[in-house]
């Protein structure tokens, strides 16, 4: 255990005030939890179920929502997007982590360069990539220089979602890689030494040692990445507004459009409720992964 075990708290008979002190130390954070997370969640649920109107709670808003092809379409788009973007990001992050976990010269510098886009706002990368993907932009210039045909990217219903995936991955990969490199550092080097003596090649070492021992950080990254990808909004809102033909209408954009462009507060609340339920389920898994076994004692 890395943190040296749980120490005994002082037993000096001055503990009367401890409960009160705990309340004082926790009060601001608890207030923030209630006001900033629980209250709006409850509020959305109440509106979604129609509580507070003359009638009792009902599922009318949800029925309405699921009868709306625009909403079901956005769920399908989000599902397709998630199925594509998560494996792509994690595979890339893993490949980079393996690459940058070696003792290459200047490896720290390369790792920093890959991590740095984390700090760049999604809006910024969306705007840069949006211009880069224009018909007369540098990406198409590069394509043409290599002898490929010009691509429509964001303006085509077939390519827009893929383009959004490229943009989002640019930020995500370095971030997730950092978790995986940290996990690799925890793998004892004796395993690799033993494998090398047995004549295992790099590919075998990766499959038989790295991957199995990386299961825990990999699961964490998978869960956290899934949640963050459910909530992608800025690139869609800035670049495509969900189009063309709804091909990039991810669920956050759908909620936003519903609430503000269509003024459908109840529908937006119902959609938010569904989103929060899904996210909470995934986050609960994440929370379990974050805790070590001895954390609750």
């Amino acid at each position: 255990m890395a943190d040296g075990g749980r120490r005994r708290p002082p037993r000096l008979g001055r503990r009367q005030g401890e409960w009160l002190a705990a309340a004082g130390f926790l009060a601001p954070a608890l207030l923030a939890v209630v006001v900033l997370r629980l209250w709006p969640t409850l509020q959305a649920a109440l509106v979604a179920f129609g509580v507070g109107l003359s009638k009792g709670p009902s599922l009318a808003n949800f029925r309405f929502l699921f009868a709306d092809p625009e909403f079901t379409g956005s769920l399908l788009t989000t599902a397709l997007y998630s199925l594509l973007v998560n494996p792509i990001q994690i595979a890339l992050a893993l490949a980079l982590a393996v690459l940058l976990n070696r003792a290459l010269p200047g490896v720290g510098l390369w790792r920093t360069l890959v991590l740095l886009p984390v700090a760049v706002p999604q809006v910024v990368s969306a705007v840069i990539w949006g211009v880069a993907m224009r018909p007369d932009g540098p990406l198409n210039a590069l394509f043409q220089a290599c002898g490929f045909a010009q691509q429509p990217f964001l303006t085509s219903p077939r390519q827009a979602l893929g383009s959004i995936i490229i943009i989002v991955s640019w930020i995500g990969v370095g971030y997730w890689m950092t978790f995986l490199i940290a996990g690799m550092k925890d793998i004892p080097t004796q395993y690799y030494e033993a494998a090398a003596i047995d004549g295992a090649n790099a590919w075998q070492r990766f499959w038989k040692i790295t991957l199995p021992l990386l299961r825990r950080p990999l699961t964490f990254v998978l869960v956290a990445d899934t949640v963050s990808n459910f909530l992608v909004f800025a690139p869609v809102q800035v670049l495509t507004k969900g189009g063309p033909q709804g091909s990039t209408n991810l669920v956050m954009n759908e909620i936003f459009t519903r609430a503000f462009d269509q003024g459908d507060t109840a529908g937006a609340a119902a959609a938010t409720t569904i989103l929060v339920l899904v996210v909470v389920a995934v986050v609960t898994i994440q929370f379990r992964l974050m805790l070590r076994k001895d954390d609750f004692s």
């Binding site: 997370r37 709006p40 969640t41 509020q43 963050s228 909004f233 937006a268 938010t272 929060v276 986050v283």
Partner: peptide, 13 residues
């Protein structure tokens, strides 16, 4: 757990 609920998911309400 509450703070891990991503803020964006409840931003609209």
């Amino acid at each position: 757990v509450s703070f891990l609920i991503p803020f964006d998911s409840i931003a609209v309400p």
